[in-house]
Design a protein around this nucleic acid. Structure first.
Length: 497
RNA sequence: GGCGCUAUCGUCUAGGGGUUAGGACGUGAGAUUCUCAAUCUUAAAACCCGGGUUCGAUUCCCGGUAGCGCUACCA
């Protein structure tokens, strides 16, 4: 369909515009993901723009953390901008709007953040004294160096209706008379969010603005700015908000690190699972599917599938992660090729202080992959494969529920005998051990439990023969010997009593 | 306060004028198994309230209520 040059692709362009005032939080991540999905689904362009006009609150650490989060997600973007580098354009456009008479200077001193606005009782719309200040006086005061903000002169008393069709929420209308004279430029010369955002969206030819629903009503102001700019209006689509179980908007301040993307990363979520989970919050493929790969999500994503009600991320004090996110992560882990999963697991083990060879990790991976929900679970699921010396455990664990220490000893002694000779491969081991059980006239359960505890140091572990195969003959025999010693000490402790 | 948005199991959601209101997570029970896990079967669990419209509303309309958002020289 493109008729001209090589660079001429689709004109569909979306942007993700975080402001670097904290780490990347899950709501922002979802907005990013939806934009990305929309762009890729439609072969459009994804723009990343740092909305950093709030000098006071922006930090480099935050910029870093946002990039960390985005990089982890693994979704790329095509173009990158920083608003702070585009100030000249913003100011020029403000001058333009002012020159057209669509804005005016407001010399009222700014009130401090958090301070109650002057007329809190009713809706603040404008300060007629400033709005109607004669141009000569305005110019004179400005020339005299008096600080001022520039405000948009919202049409009043004309009964004008502002409207747009939202890609998610449908037709939105509002009376212009109900929109306040919002600021375009602060008295320190910095553009406001509304101005900078619209100027850049127009300049970067953004075709679809997909963002959080908290901007739904701001959009009326943006309509006015685009009009003043003489720019073509992009399409808007607002996303339902992600909220905490108490219904409040997810905030870094109130909910802490559970809303940070890095928390999920560090706990061992797979990016694919995290993305999958976030997509299911406020969007549905409408075919009862829950587990979706990135490709499947890209193929299925449409704005029509986005719903309108806020979605709860169901975390608690005890458990910071939504159970569905955890389940999806387990699903994605199981869907991963063993080779790939083992590669993902290596750094986890390293960080925990284990340094197994890649081959060993590869051998262990299939044994634990159905037993872990988060990557970090692998440490507690597999530690006994890597330690030189088993962590101390209660000798009583060696005794099967229906049995006594004597039985445990008989079983372990028999096992020690058999294992000296038995080939260390799964099926032959299985065969040999079952035969040993038959000879002892012991059932599988009571037979294998003492051995499992001896070899793994705990009752719950992966299947015994596969585990022993990975551990190897020497380690198994040594641990069984140690278990027998433990049993003796148990007897000694008991007998004098 | 003003303006706006929203409302289906605990949570995420499907659906839509007549359905046993579907799925998933989680929870309970059972099956399987050398333990755990995985897997399978199964159970409990929802249309915010009140009016209309209609032969019939959970679905459409209006009102109420509740929640959320915006109402900054924050974004």
């Amino acid at each position: 369909m493109p008729e001209s040059g090589p660079s001429s692709t689709n004109s569909l362009r979306v942007r993700f515009a975080p402001s670097p005032t904290g780490y990347l939080h899950v709501g922002s991540a979802r907005t990013f993901i939806f934009n990305w999905l929309f762009a890729r689904h439609n072969s459009g362009t994804m723009v990343l723009r740092l909305d950093d006009t709030d000098v006071e609150r922006n930090t480099d650490a935050s910029v870093q953390s946002i990039f960390d989060g985005l990089r982890w997600l693994g979704l790329n973007w095509d173009e990158e901008y920083k608003q702070s580098e585009r100030l000249a354009l913003h100011r020029r456009q403000v001058d333009d709007i002012f020159a057209k008479g669509l804005a005016y200077r407001d010399f009222t001193p700014a009130h401090a953040a958090g301070e109650e606005p002057t007329s809190a009782q009713g809706a603040w719309l404008c300060n007629p004294g400033m709005r109607d200040l004669p141009r000569e006086e305005s110019d004179r005061r400005a020339a005299a160096g008096e600080p001022f903000a520039v405000r948009y002169r919202v049409p009043r008393g004309e009964g004008r209706t502002l409207q747009f069709v939202d890609g998610v929420y449908g037709l939105q209308t509002k009376l212009a008379d109900e929109v306040e004279d919002f600021a375009l430029l602060r008295s320190d010369g910095m553009p406001t969010y509304h101005l900078a955002s619209c100027v850049d969206d127009a300049d970067l030819r953004i075709s679809h603005i997909i963002r959080g629903q908290d901007h739904l009503t701001n959009t009326f102001k943006h309509l006015l700015i685009f009009e003043a700019l003489g720019a073509t209006l992009p399409k808007f689509a607002h996303l339902p908000l992600l909220v905490a179980p108490d219904g409040a908007k997810l905030s870094k301040r109130k909910h802490g690190s559970v809303v940070s993307v890095t928390t999920y990363r560090d706990a061992g979520f797979l990016p694919s699972a995290f993305i999958n989970f976030l997509c299911l919050l406020g969007w549905s493929p409408k075919n009862d599917r829950e587990f979706l790969t990135l490709d499947e999500l890209t193929g299925a994503f449409t704005l029509e599938g986005v719903n309108r009600a806020n979605a709860v991320v169901n975390f608690t004090e005890e458990d910071p992660f939504d159970a569905k996110a955890v389940w999806l992560n387990a699903e994605h882990i199981r869907a991963m090729p063993v080779e790939e999963l083992s590669r993902a697991l290596r750094p986890i083990f390293e960080r925990a202080g284990f340094h197994p060879s890649p081959e060993k990790v590869l051998a262990v991976t299939p044994l634990i992959r159905e037993r872990i929900k988060l990557l970090r679970d692998a440490v507690s699921a597999a530690d006994f494969f890597f330690v030189e010396e088993l962590a101390p455990y209660d000798a009583a664990e060696l005794i099967p529920q229906k049995g006594d220490a004597a039985l445990a000893r008989r079983v372990l002694e028999k096992a020690a005998q058999v294992l000296v000779e038995a080939p260390f491969e799964h099926d032959p081991l299985d065969h040999a051990m079952r035969q040993a059980a038959a000879e002892l006239n012991v059932k599988a359960g009571p037979m294998f439990q003492p051995i499992r505890v001896a070899v793994c140091g705990r009752k719950n572990a992966p299947p015994l023969f596969a585990t022993m195969t990975v551990l190897g003959r020497e380690v198994c025999l040594e641990r069984i010997r140690q278990a027998l010693t433990k049993l003796e000490s148990l007897d000694e402790a008991k007998s004098p009593a």
